[in-house]
Amino acid sequence: MKKTVFLGALTVAGLAAGAAAAGTLDDVKARGKLNCGVTTGLVGFAAPDANGEWSGFDVAVCRAVAAAVLGDSKAVEFVPTTGKTRFTALASGEIDMLARNTTWTFSRDVDLKFTFVGVNYYDGQGFMVPKSLGVSSAKELDGSTVCIQTGTTTELNLADFFRANNISYEPVPIETNAEGQQQYLAGACDTYTTDASGLASTRATFENPGDHVLLPEIISKEPLGPLVRHGDDEWGDVVRWSLNALITAEELGVTSANIGEMSAAAGDNPEINRLLGTEGNLGEMLGLSADWAKNAISADGNFGEIFEKHLGESTPIGLARGLNAQWTEGGLIYSPPFR
């Protein structure tokens, strides 16, 4: 009898370890906090401000999910991850989701066993050089020293680009964006390469941003998006539709300013009503409260508001919407319908 109990306990322990991957939604609800993986600091995407509060474009996605699940956009534990540690952190369950300008690629989706729930920023890899270097095209970079964040897709794109153009380079691998910035500014590398948005955000923090230019070549497609572990579709749905809620809200004109009024009572537009939970039971289907999307949108505004606030032309980073405009305005941002 005792032996059976012991073996049973062993089995339970084994199963518990195995089952940790499933049921993330319940885990988050029970914990009352969302563990969200972000960068170690990339202004505009995720960086702590003077008060230690995280803010940024990726952070806004974390906050929206936390608001949708827990009703509180502050109930997020931000876990800074490097390009190297992020996947291990997600696979091991240390974080519930990763929103760390991570490129959606085949091997990450299929081989690393992650589920990308969508794209929140369409990016591409670029090069930044000091103006004084007099370089106007990436193809003139033969023999240059290139600073590159290790453990990223940019590392592979870089190797491919230089091989395809039959020119040589010297990679200087670095661990974090801050390190890259230091080496680049000291002239230890001629050029710094990463996603163009990251370069713009890094340049914005320089003393003299005007002394540095981004080269015209964009050498890769980098669709950046939040991701979760494979095999927990319920949780994947929650994150996916939280992001879609932000996008749809912009498309339908739901903003943080008018959301209180719009969600008070069912209006004329049935899709808005379904989104905000005044009609239908979409929230219940996700295992969330009826006002989940309202909470998500109130957290930091709709997709467009988030973009303008953290990356847009009024910020020091000054990125144009470009590919990241709504599909109705010639961009690629498109959410499936709330129905």
Partner: peptide
């Protein structure tokens, strides 16, 4: 070594290879 970007075996096998292959 990885702290200064020196590509020792922890940087190649235990760093980039680990990251790219998972």
């Amino acid at each position: 070594a990885i702290a200064v970007g020196y590509m020792d075996i922890t940087g190649t096998l235990g760093g980039i290879t680990l990251n790219q292959t998972g």
